[in-house]
């Protein structure tokens, strides 16, 4: 191989060995990485599919489509979608305010956005339940109007909104920061008012990041357990989300039932993340 040849040329790729580096330790670190991933990620996750295969198609269907499971999927998807959409709207607003304006306490507000990443979900769960229970700080405001929040699907949505907030803000923020000011100036000189500029110029540029943030927020919400278990009340068929149903199957040592529901949930989040990727790519192409 002559040094003048580009590294990734077709011939060098075919003739060079797997590892193409003069640096030491590549084989060692690669081996360690592969072993670590094999034992801690690949083998554990493959158990789900092996177990499902052993169940057989009819056994899987029976466990995965019981009325209680269907109710749990519906509730999980409904509350997660609502929470993700709420976060899409308010997360965009928060990202906008944090990048465009100056005000006192801005850096504290910015740091606080990551709280749901840093605060353990169990702590978030007990805190939200206390706040939104009928005698809680917020729950007491709604109770006189006959609105119950804790121990209803509304309470679940509140918890899922809490944990999903940073995803949207942190996806949109960097894009908003690097958006060239000139395109807004051009829109303004061409006679667009602020709202038109936002809708026609800024929003299309933000769409891929917004879609990414909303879908990450959804993916996180659909699997969430800790912050929901306290506020939901766990009534089968009414406030039992899918991860809670998996947990209750496990407590009854019904591993096959738990696995069937887990596989459905994994496929669901895979579909959401993949289709979000496609939407994102299309939006990026249109914006470009």
């Amino acid at each position: 191989m002559t040094p003048a040849l580009p590294r990734r040329s077709a011939t060098s790729a075919r003739t060079t060995p797997r590892v193409r580096s003069v640096l030491p330790g590549v084989r060692l670190t690669l081996g360690f990485t592969l072993a670590y991933l094999l034992f801690l990620v690949i083998i554990p996750l493959s158990t789900l599919f092996v177990r499902t295969a052993r169940l057989g198609w009819s056994g899987f269907l029976e466990a995965a489509t019981s009325p209680r499971a269907i109710a749990a999927y519906k509730l999980s998807v409904g509350t997660s979608v609502t929470a993700a959409v709420v976060n899409g709207v308010f997360g965009l607003l928060v990202a906008w305010v944090l990048t465009r304006y100056r005000f006192t306490g801005k850096s504290i507000a910015d740091a606080l956005v990551d709280l749901p990443f840093a605060l353990p979900t169990a702590v978030a769960g007990v805190a939200l339940t206390t706040l939104y229970a009928q005698n809680g700080l917020i729950g007491a405001l709604f109770a006189p109007h006959g609105i119950k929040i804790a121990f209803t699907p509304l309470g679940i949505t509140v918890a899922l909104t809490f944990i999903g907030l940073p995803f949207v803000v942190r996806s949109v923020q960097p894009v908003l920061e690097t958006l060239p000011k000139e395109i807004e100036e051009v829109a303004a000189t061409l006679g667009a008012d602020r709202w038109q500029t936002f809708r026609r110029v800024i929003l299309p540029a933000l769409t891929p990041a917004l879609v990414a943030g909303v879908s990450l927020s959804f993916a996180r919400a659909i699997g969430e357990y800790g912050s929901v278990v306290f506020i939901s009340g766990n009534m089968p068929g009414r406030t039992e989300i899918a991860p809670l149903l998996i947990m209750s199957k496990l407590e009854q040592y019904d591993y096959s039932g738990a696995t069937a529901i887990a596989v459905v949930m994994l496929l669901l989040s895979a579909v959401i993340l993949i289709s979000a990727g496609l939407v994102q790519r299309r939006a990026a192409r249109r914006a470009a």
């Binding site: 990620v41 177990r51 659909i222 357990y225 998996i246 496990l250 591993y255 738990a258 887990a262 994994l266």
Partner: peptide, 16 residues
């Protein structure tokens, strides 16, 4: 692991 529900993560270790 970020895309897998924590409950499902726990389940896989029980299946092992």
């Amino acid at each position: 692991p970020l895309a897998v529900s924590p409950v499902i993560a726990g389940l896989t270790f029980m299946l092992l």
